[in-house]
Every structure is written in structure tokens, then in C-alpha cells.
């Protein structure tokens, strides 16, 4: 119960910061808008296969940008303060929770802009929205943990890409395969792959909870 309270207040702190310093939120929003506009200029009406590939790669880059600052913004002294009031597990869980929420919002917005500018080849709208949310969640979890590593190594967001891209390939492949099923009315979305993705996400959370205490100590 106590750790639940800790997680909740750390989560609320991140949310409040986001609401007060809105430049960050709008920054990511502008990033999404500008990227999709460039794509719109570059290609007019992509085929479903191209649309699918572009959509997930753009999600990947949005995720890196949205999640990267979550640990980098915490200064050394502030980390010391968190250290004295909360455990590392609560801290990383709060971050995972907050970044998941942030990425869910961003995924939905980018889906909206994508279908607005680049047409919408999706046949099954509702399952695809679910898929986009699941994908956003998966990406945010992996990259939150890598952001923690990058912040501890005092590196910029570029190292997150190096560290993360090989790790995210299987999840992206699964997501693209599921999205392909959502594009064609005759295919059903295989539920076992969805479950596999959820299992992978839970594994990432578990690994983060086990490994973060080792990063945290200085």
C-alpha cells in the first residue's frame, strides 16, 4: 500500500510537471506533425504495405523523442532527493506508468494525423486502434528502461537508438504482421501474437524492476 502511494505521487509529479511545462508536450506534438507533413510532401498515397512500415517507424522515432527526456530531466540532486523518499522500484514503475500514458496519447494523435494526411488503408478500425495502443505501450516500456541506462551513462538520445533498435525489432515485426491482418478484411487478427506481445511487455516491466536498483545507486 505504501509503495502504491509512492508510485502514485511520483506519477502525479510527472503529470503535473508535464501540465505546467507544456513546451515539452507541444514539442513532441510538433515533431509528430512536422514528420507526418514531410511524409505527406514526399509521398502522396502510399500502398498499405508502405503505410504500415512508415507508420511503425515513425512511432519508433516519436517514442525515442517522447521518452528520452524522462530520466535526463532529473538532475543529480533531485535524484538524491527521490532516493531518500522512495525506493528504486517505485520510482521506475512510476516512470514506466507515466511514459506509457504519454506514448498512448501520442500514438493516438499520430494515428489521427496519419489517416488525415496519408489516407487510411485500415479495414478494421477498432482492432487497429487497440493495436496502436499496444504498440505504443510496448515501445514506451522498452525505451523507458533504455532512457534510464542512457541517462546514467550521461549520453544523449542517440545512444538510446543504438541500444534499442536491435531489441525492438521482434516486437516491431510482430506489430507489423498484426497490422497487415487489420488491413485485409479476409484475415483475422491472431490472438496468440497479441498475447505474446503482452507477455513480452510484462517481461520488460519485470526486468526493469529487477535491474533498475543497480542503475540507481551511485
Amino acid at each position: 500500500m505504501k509503495s502504491f502511494n509512492h508510485i502514485y505521487s511520483l506519477f502525479k509529479k510527472d503529470l503535473l510537471l508535464e501540465v505546467r511545462q507544456q513546451y515539452n508536450f507541444y514539442g513532441i506534438l510538433l515533431y509528430i506533425g512536422a514528420t507526418i507533413f514531410v511524409l505527406y510532401m514526399a509521398i502522396e498515397e502510399p500502398e498499405p504495405k508502405v503505410w504500415n512500415g512508415l507508420f511503425w517507424v515513425i512511432q519508433l522515432f516519436i517514442c525515442i523523442n517522447a521518452v528520452a527526456k524522462s530520466f535526463l530531466q532529473e538532475s543529480r540532486s533531485r535524484m538524491l532527493y527521490y532516493y531518500s523518499i522512495a525506493g528504486p522500484r517505485d520510482f521506475v514503475l512510476a516512470k514506466l506508468l507515466f511514459n506509457s500514458l504519454l506514448m498512448l496519447v501520442m500514438s493516438l494523435l499520430s494515428l489521427l494525423l496519419f489517416s488525415l494526411f496519408l489516407t487510411n488503408p485500415v479495414q478494421k478500425i477498432l482492432p487497429f486502434i487497440g493495436l496502436v495502443l499496444l504498440g505504443g505501450w510496448s515501445l514506451s516500456l522498452v525505451f523507458t528502461f533504455l532512457a534510464a541506462i542512457a541517462a546514467k551513462a550521461q549520453q544523449n538520445a542517440a545512444i538510446m537508438a543504438i541500444l534499442g533498435f536491435p531489441l525492438i525489432i521482434p516486437q516491431l515485426l510482430l506489430l507489423m504482421q498484426l497490422s497487415n491482418a487489420a488491413f485485409k478484411p479476409e484475415l483475422t487478427i491472431p490472438i496468440d501474437i497479441v498475447l505474446l506481445l503482452i507477455a513480452l511487455d510484462l517481461m520488460v516491466v519485470l526486468l526493469a524492476v529487477i535491474l533498475f536498483p543497480f542503475l540507481w545507486k551511485d
Binding site: 528502461f145 541506462i149 541500444l163 536491435p166 535491474l211
Partner: peptide, 10 residues
């Protein structure tokens, strides 16, 4: 070490 374990598990 943390990255090694995380990456290997993935």
C-alpha cells in the same frame, strides 16, 4: 552489466 542482462533477456 545491466544492459548486457536486459539485452540478453530480450
Amino acid at each position: 552489466a545491466v544492459y548486457n542482462i536486459f539485452a540478453f533477456a530480450m
